[in-house]
């Protein structure tokens, strides 16, 4: 197996996903098969080859830092899982210092 059950659980935690035992076992097999297939890349000579992260030769464009009105506040509020008046209730995402 290219990947172990323990690794699957570890990565699942990093991905903020969870799998029951049965799912994790199936996933371990599927991922192993796929990762084995990826091994064919190791046979390609990439010495002195630069990576391509993007096919366009464009630089990050800059713009003036101007304040513009944002007209969609009501629409965004409608998509929130929980509201208090015009505020989105979120779980506490920072630790108490």
């Amino acid at each position: 197996m290219a990947i172990s059950l323990e690794e699957v659980y570890k990565i699942a935690h990093l991905c903020r996903l969870e799998f029951n035992e049965e799912e994790a076992k199936v996933l371990t097999e599927e991922l192993s098969k796929i990762l084995d297939y990826f091994k064919k890349l190791q046979t390609v000579n990439t010495e002195n080859v630069a990576p391509t992260f993007h096919t366009l030769k464009v630089k990050t464009p800059f713009r003036e830092d101007e304040v513009k009105e944002f007209p969609y506040i009501e629409d965004i509020l409608k998509n929130a899982p929980q509201l208090y008046e015009r505020m989105i209730i979120v779980p506490k995402v920072v630790k108490t210092p």
């Binding site: 990947i3 996903l17 996933l27 190791q42 990439t46 990576p51």
Partner: peptide
């Protein structure tokens, strides 16, 4: 998501993500 995380994770980044970007 799992495949992507694996390909980017420490110890596998060079062998998977970087290698694929070179290919």
């Amino acid at each position: 998501i799992m495949l992507g995380a694996y390909a980017l994770s420490a110890g596998y980044y060079d062998a998977f993500y970087l290698k694929a970007s070179k290919v």
